[in-house]
Design a protein around this nucleic acid. Structure first.
Lengths: 264, 264
DNA sequence: AAAAGATATATTGTCAACAATAATTGAAAA
DNA sequence: TTTTCAATTATTGTTGACAATATATCTTTT
């Protein structure tokens, strides 16, 4: 492989494959375009790429320390290097990847210290958010969350592990969205995404990490406008997740980016 | 003015001027270099530029809706467009500027809705942080905060308005830093910076916005390890700030970037 | 004089070539 | 065979040119 095929179309299957993985909550595309080849191309911007990598991390398809080479990402998304570089810059600013000078971008591999920072922050934020949402939730948001939970149990039923992991995390994000505060929801999303990495590194069993009906319990309390209960349930829920982790023994990880992104 | 003087050195006075403005809490430089001209040049990276603009916003030198043109920033910092573009991307991701396609970057001008989101988020976060810090603060952090407060009263005494405004905000940031949680401190910083913009837009009197001894009171409560009192004081403090705002009447703003950055 | 349109200018968006650095390979020596 | 060093290759960092778009200026028309 000699030169980077800048902006070259890539096999439809590749792109389609990538797209299909997370259909349950697809990010908005910046626009669409198709051309005479019959290949659908998406006009992809930084935000889109960031979104995609977020999802891949959430689904444990991108393991900590995986290298994200510009070349691969360019090919995967069919964009030039600039786009990829800028997306990587954003991801690094959000603490999802480490950007090492002249070496490249690597999915962060949070040590025990950073991992507990993440859960500390969540423990501080999310119960308060749950309380806040309980005090005033619109019917639209309530339905949105109910739909989401039914997606979760669906995924649990059909044993689609990756989906379940992602959806589990997304519940917390969407709950924050229901607060109507965009700042908070952005922060929670970042935290949840990192949590997903942490669970991949230190998670013992998957059962513990995605407790069965807890999201529903929380939402019920919210629906009944019981602020205290909502807060308490959220605290317990987060504790339960944290208990499912063992910070002394990081799980070994194998990551082949090309395979993960469905390119082989 | 015909071409952008890419990477050209600019008058020492200009750079020095920019640097001198916020000597009280200078961001780290990525490295220093001087050459035969006798002019000191700083190797400036995105982080540095972001930091600088953060400070300018904090000190109310950059008013909402001010345009940050690439050309001006390139000249101001003596870097190429790439650096500036990346810095702007980061700032926009952090919600400090709006990036309008083909039009440029503008300091955000938060409407009443976004403004209350900011204070809502602060009300959620900062009391909890105060409580947390009160339960366990190291002597190093305690001293750091005390020093900071003495800087504040110094600025208050010498009537250096810009410094006082910035220092006032920075107290909240440094308090978050004392929590030892880098995620939280990043978020708080973002919120505080935006608050500064908001105060500039909707602030009635400066007295109200920088209440005199409240920071000291909060810190004292923390030093006495009184978690409840710390939390309560922080709540009151934030309320007081919010009360000093009038969301119905945005203050008119005049902003000439070149002048603000000391280039005329 | 005011409004509308056309031309010119300035600003941002994008790209592709080049430079700098790190990783890899292969050859030579121990 | 293993180690060390040099040369090669691959990857990232940076730059300057060019394209696309918006803004300003100037002319023309009503």
């Amino acid at each position: 492989m000699s030169k980077i095929p800048n902006r070259k179309a890539l096999g439809a299957s590749t792109v389609a494959d990538l797209n299909s993985r997370s259909r349950a909550s697809e990010p908005e595309r910046s626009g669409t375009a198709s051309d005479s080849d019959g290949i659908n191309r998406y006009r992809v911007d930084e935000k889109f790429i960031v979104e995609r990598i977020y999802n891949a991390v959430m689904e444990h398809r991108l393991a900590p320390a995986t290298k994200l080479s510009e070349h691969t990402l360019c090919a995967t998304f069919g964009v030039g290097r600039m786009r990829v570089q800028r997306a990587l810059l954003l991801l690094s600013d959000q603490g999802i990847i480490d950007l090492e000078k002249n070496r490249g971008a690597f999915v962060v591999s949070p040590g025990p210290t950073e991992a507990s920072e993440v859960f500390e922050a969540r423990a501080l934020l999310e119960p308060a958010i749950a309380r806040h949402v309980a005090s005033d939730i619109g019917s639209k948001n309530l339905e949105m969350l109910k739909r989401h939970i039914s997606l979760e149990s669906e995924a649990r039923g059909s044993n689609s592990g990756a989906d379940l992991i992602r959806l589990s995390g997304e519940f917390h994000w969407k709950l924050a969205q229901a607060s109507g505060n965009r700042i908070l929801s952005r922060v929670v999303r970042e935290l949840v995404t990192k949590s997903s990495l942490i669970v991949g590194l230190y998670g013992a069993s998957k059962q513990k990490v995605c407790p069965k009906d807890e999201h529903l319990e929380i939402l019920s309390a919210i629906e009944r406008c019981e602020a205290n209960a909502s807060e308490a349930l959220m605290i317990e829920h987060l504790n339960r997740i944290r208990e499912g982790l063992d910070f002394s023994a990081p799980q070994p990880q194998d990551g082949d980016l090309a395979e993960i992104l469905g390119m082989k």
